[in-house]
Design a protein around this nucleic acid. Structure first.
Length: 644
DNA sequence: AGCACGCCGACT
DNA sequence: GTCGGCGTGCTC
């Protein structure tokens, strides 16, 4: 080599890339390779992400030399993708490297396990072409074949239709398309899909999610990097895996909140999938039986190609949804209509499920002064468990005895408030003389699965809805739809609607789902009742437009944690905001918020909002830079937050 | 991540 | 007086 060569190396920890000298004998294709480089007193594995041609503001004498060069981890497009993640989510490149299996890849290459099995090509099960192929469907398959960026949104009629559809497409392209990623929001959904995919792809398939053991992940990564596995099924992080030349990306249950991370690099795997598809030139399919408002909007403006299966009336048969007005009831916590139906169903030997939000019996409230009991430490309402006779903080787990008198007014008129699974069970026992089975997280899920099949009457939390899987009921009731609708979040209605649609799938087509509410006139309840997706999306889009929320605007949330006096700190932050010249942005806050971190006492929160996505990023970056200069603080940035 | 530097409590 | 606690900051 005639001249010295310099490169930027990223390390898998919160640190920007550093510049190193490339050793004389190294190969020129160093970009994208794993290297070992000195850092401070020790040495670490890193990734070469740039070839540097001009050394700016760096003294040559202070630049160290790379120790060793190893296997390739990423190609150019993957590196561009990682860099995009870093800029878009306002995180140092190291934070990205931490989340994308880099360290596992290092292990896989250093351990040099040469026990790779011979690559046996999967036997493709006989292709059964989609007879219902619409023009945009063949467009989808072709985009995957030709390897070009084309995003699609499938609005499926049901969950089972969604997976059937995806499997049909995969079967169709399996023999002539290489390199496929399939995402599911949660591990149990990955497990549900894996047998079907195994059947199609055989040994080509590998699975990637956080519950796998370290060694299993390393093994999977080895297969991905060698190309032995070119079909990856996994949860959110799988979209960051070093898969070469992705042709097709499927994001199932695209509306799911689980695609958004709440710690570390807070990326939304669904959005990231679209960007990865764009950078790597792949066909991207987002699918759901109840897609997010954002995705439906993107389809409407032509950003995504929309696939809406023709409505087949035989599939269309859906359970009736009825609204149970609890306002009419005198004392009961369950509506008469629901009790009547439940009695009828059980008398005929059918199955009923009642979904409640809360575990335990109820909250405790002083009837005299309306004071609700809260955990002293967490300020969360305490839950009263009648069977064990204690109160419990669901947040910190602290258990206590029932208070004798009200702390506020010293009164003795403490009454249960609201209803949890225990209280519903009691009510059912009283009214119908039926012993219901409770299914919830803590509740010693004694042989759920087989046992629950026998149980004709189930009371459960959201956890149960998941646990029960594909079991179908003759009737279901959702008791706390009001609290979902009342969430202080602009996506509350969207979530409530999706929740109803999801629970409707637990009910037999000829069965009934009851929504118990104080608010029978609520628009969302009406839309859900009629399965009226069109009106729902229209209404929701109009609301978002009026209030200038996503998809019409972009939001970035800042959380600044501090230990010192918050009032003074608030002023400092305000000054920085003024200083940062955030013209053109809407700024909400800064306001004080409860700190979610143990080691920091205070938290200052602010929200940046804008219709200009370039501007908001640019301004957020300068703001972040200025905030970082403050001492003794911790900053969390959340781009496109889901919970605000 | 790891390691150095730095400023306050118990102790050979 | 020191030893060492971990809070804060830096690494090409």
């Amino acid at each position: 080599m005639l001249f010295d060569m310099y490169v930027n190396v990223a390390f898998p920890f919160t640190l920007p890339a550093l510049t190193y000298k490339v050793p004389e004998n190294a190969l020129p294709d160093i970009k994208g390779r794993i290297v070992k480089a000195p850092i401070m007193t020790g040495s670490h594995f890193g990734l070469v992400i740039d070839i540097v041609d001009k050394l700016e503001g760096l003294d040559k004498k202070h630049i160290k030399e790379i120790h060793e060069v190893y296997q390739r981890f990423a190609n150019d497009s993957h590196i561009s993708f990682l860099k995009w993640l870093s800029t878009y989510y306002l995180a140092p490149i190291g934070a990205v490297l931490k989340g994308c299996f880099f360290e596992h890849a290092v292990q896989a290459t250093t351990k040099k396990k040469h026990d790779l099995k011979a690559f046996d090509k999967a036997t493709i099960s006989d292709v059964n072409p989609l007879d219902s192929l619409k023009p945009n469907l063949s467009m989808l398959c072709n985009a995957a074949r030709e390897k070009k960026y084309q995003p699609f949104l499938l609005h499926a009629q049901s969950i089972s239709y969604e997976s059937k559809f995806i499997m049909d497409i995969l079967r169709n392209i399996a023999s002539d398309v290489r390199s496929i990623a399939i995402l599911a929001p949660e591990i149990w959904q990955v497990e549900r899909l894996s047998p079907m995919l195994r059947e199609i792809f055989g040994e080509r398939l590998c699975i990637l999610h956080s519950k796998l053991t370290r060694n299993k992940i390393i093994e999977a990564l080895n297969k991905i990097m060698t190309g032995e596995s070119d079909v990856v099924l996994g949860t959110r992080s799988a979209i960051l895996a070093p898969i070469k030349g992705l042709s097709f990306i499927a994001v199932t249950f695209e509306h799911s909140l689980s695609y958004k991370g709440e710690e570390g690099l807070r990326y939304n795997a669904r959005d990231v999938a679209v960007m990865r598809g764009f950078i790597e030139k792949s066909c991207v399919l987002l699918s759901s039986a109840y897609p997010s408002v954002e995705s439906v909007y993107n389809a409407k403006i032509g950003k995504y190609n929309s696939i809406i299966p023709s409505i087949d009336r035989s599939i269309e048969k859906r359970p009736k949804i009825k609204i149970a007005d609890i306002k009419r009831e005198k004392k009961s916590i369950i509506s008469r209509d629901i009790l009547k139906e439940a009695k009828y169903i059980t008398s005929k030997g059918g199955r009923v499920v009642i979904l409640v939000k809360r575990e335990g019996y109820a909250l405790l409230r002083c009837e005299d002064c309306d004071h609700i009991y809260r955990c002293e430490r967490c300020n969360v309402p305490l839950v009263f468990h009648k069977i064990s006779g204690i109160t419990k903080c669901h947040y910190c787990g602290q258990e206590e005895k029932i208070p004798e008198s009200c702390k506020e007014c010293r009164g003795f008129n403490i009454k249960p408030f609201g209803a949890g699974t225990e209280r519903i069970r009691e009510e059912i026992a009283n009214a119908l003389k039926v012993e219901a089975l409770i299914i919830e997280k803590g509740h010693k899920s004694r042989a759920v699965g087989r046992d629950s099949n026998a149980a004709s009457f189930i009371i459960g939390t959201a956890y149960a809805a998941r646990k029960l899987g594909d079991e179908k009921f003759d009737a279901a009731a959702l008791l706390n739809i009001d609290s979902l609708l009342a969430q202080p979040d602009f996506r509350a209605y969207e979530r409530a609607f999706q929740e109803v649609m999801q629970i409707a799938e637990m009910v037999k087509p000829e069965g009934t789902l009851y929504l118990q509410t104080w608010n029978p006139k609520n628009k969302i309840l009406r839309f859900s009742k009629n399965y009226d997706f069109r009106s729902f999306y229209e209404y929701e889009t109009t609301q978002r437009k009026i209030l200038n929320y996503p998809p019409f605007s972009r939001i970035i949330l800042f959380n600044v944690f501090t230990k010192k006096d918050s009032g003074k700190f608030l002023h400092e932050v305000q000054k920085i905001i003024l200083d940062a010249d955030l013209n053109g942005l809407e700024i909400l806050g800064p306001v004080e918020a409860p700190s979610t971190l143990k080691s920091y006492k205070y938290c200052i929160q602010m929200l940046l909002k804008s219709n200009d996505r370039k501007l908001i990023h640019q301004k957020a970056e300068t703001l972040l830079e200025k905030l970082r200069r403050l001492k003794g603080i911790k900053i969390n940035v959340d781009v496109d937050p889901l919970k605000i």
